[in-house]
Design a protein around this nucleic acid. Structure first.
Lengths: 191, 191
DNA sequence: ACCTGAACACCGTTCAAGT
DNA sequence: ACCTGAACACCGTTCAAGT
């Protein structure tokens, strides 16, 4: 089993090492930190090395995005297992996922990114669609009609996206707020 | 009364001309289009000219942001005049403002921007806070208690921010959706 | 197969010199 | 007061040459 860290084993790099370091930079310092000169310094090689692995900087970006997309999909499929839980609980879990985003930096950067990269845009859409559907279906199961479920699920997902961008004029919502929110979204039956 | 266009009158530029052109570029082609070499080409001068008016590119950015902020504040104060309208109508107007953003490009760019520029962040906060308060107060006027009003107003504002960023996995909301939404947010009394 | 080193284009920044 | 022109640093990109 090959190691991905350049520190262990061979001194040569694989494309993987660049992607990994790039994703790490994206999460800690944001999109602006991904410079190939910076990556070279971090990885201890010269620029020529980079251009052996990638055709240009956009290609690296694409690879980083792809890796993030894969991980996000895995996370979503893990979330799929919540289908056994009661509907209100499912809604609550989706709400929490929207808020306590651990890698907030990535989410923001990828949204900027999605403007220019259709692959990234596709995975973001997939994620939003997934969450929307879980909430929507849970609401239908609770007895809401199609239109009511659509409106409420849409509102929740959009609000979730907004959380990631809000300038906390309004305080960042807490876990309690999420509970209240679920109570409101599915309130007619929850109370 | 001095003209701001370099085409009329003198051939010399004022700082204003750079800001105006920069804001135009921001709206039409996004943040990435603001290069000082590009601006020089558009305005028909050399880079030295730019550096007579501004200390660096960040300073231009700041000036562009400031101008946008001024315009946004004016727009908000115009919106203040809706205070005479019935509460539900006020909520509906705020909802519409959040959606039919004509200069969507600017809003997105400025949010990126706000991460690094606290002035821009401040005006974004102001805007969000303003809309939040209008909705909140309208809800209180409709008979909601403090906590219910806070939750609902917050949800609406965050959803509005989310609209600007959603990858339309879910369809962009229409004016009718906004009406339905208002019916939901203030539903207990509206129906 | 993976990397160095030197080259080049492009962009931000500076500054002496021009009107 | 406003601008030119030439210079320099920095970054992305290319490529011949090395192991």
């Amino acid at each position: 089993m090959p190691k991905s860290s350049p520190a262990t084993g061979s001194t040569r790099l694989r494309a993987d090492d660049w992607v990994e370091r790039g994703l790490a930079l994206l999460m800690t310092e944001g999109l602006g930190a991904i410079k190939i000169s910076r990556l070279c310094r971090d990885l201890g090689v010269t620029k020529g090395s980079f251009y052996w692995h990638f055709s240009d900087v956009d290609s690296l970006m694409g690879a980083i995005a792809e890796r993030w997309c894969t991980r996000t999909r895995e996370e979503l499929s893990r979330l799929h297992k919540v289908q056994g839980l009661p509907p209100l609980e499912r809604i609550r879990l989706m709400g929490l996922r929207l808020v306590d985003e651990p890698s907030e930096h990535v989410e923001r950067a990828l949204r900027e990114w999605a403007v220019h990269d259709s692959d990234v845009a596709a995975v973001l859409r997939e994620t939003e669609q997934f969450i929307f559907e879980v909430v929507h279906d849970a609401l239908v199961e609770l007895g809401y009609d199609e239109e009511a479920a659509r409106l409420r699920a849409g509102l929740l997902v959009y609000a979730g996206i907004g959380f990631a961008y809000g300038q906390q004029a309004l305080p960042k919502p807490t876990a309690k707020d999420i509970n209240d929110l679920v109570g409101f979204i599915a309130g007619d039956v929850a109370r």
